[in-house]
């Protein structure tokens, strides 16, 4: 087993530049969780098939289990920890609020990935149809909800953000 050793890299995450050390083959998911303590991003399948680890890269939703950390330099990464709303007493983004109020989470393990995916959608399309919401979320798997309350949460948050 030959290791090429850790290299320093700078990652811009949720608006803050983090300097850390990671091996060349380190995955963004591992660096977020193990090096930076950002545990909100979840490890579900580790193979790009569940969406639990979805984060935003330059505003676009991507899967952090299939991104090399070193490829992420120079990009803006956003995780669930970066979502907030100063106007909300809980500090929650309208999507997060809607998720809670509409029952978008049960076990909650898929929630961060779903919320980030929904955020990218609403940034691009403020008023998506139900069909469009389902399509945009179709890389995310939830085993608890049957998706109904997730879709309702996105619709409700979209309406709130628009108003």
């Amino acid at each position: 087993m030959k290791s090429t050793g850790k290299r320093i890299l700078k990652l811009s995450i949720n608006g803050t530049v983090h300097e850390c050390a990671a091996e060349p083959q380190a995955l963004l998911l591992d660096v977020l969780r193990n090096e930076l303590g950002l545990f909100g991003t979840k490890r579900g399948c580790d193979m790009g098939t569940c969406g639990c680890c979805n984060v935003l890269v330059d505003g676009q939703v991507q899967m952090s289990c299939l991104l090399l950390a070193h490829d992420m330099t120079g990009k803006e990464i956003e995780t669930i920890e970066g979502l907030f709303d100063v106007g909300d007493p809980r500090g929650l983004h309208p999507l997060q609020r809607a998720w809670a109020e509409h029952g978008g989470s049960q076990c909650g393990f898929c929630t961060p990935g779903f919320v980030m995916t929904a955020k990218a959608l609403l940034t691009e399309e403020p008023d998506p149809s139900e069909e469009r919401i389902r399509e945009a979320l179709s890389g995310n798997v939830c085993r608890c909800t049957g998706y109904k309350k997730i879709v309702e949460a996105v619709q409700s948050a979209a309406a709130e953000i628009r108003s």
Binding site: R33, L83, R90, L92, G103, G108
Partner: peptide, 19 residues
């Protein structure tokens, strides 16, 4: 009523074993 842990989960603050 929303579940009592709903906000924590939506915030990504729920602590699972691997966290």
């Amino acid at each position: 009523l929303p579940l009592v842990d709903a906000w924590r989960k939506a915030a990504g603050q729920a602590v699972y074993t691997d966290d």
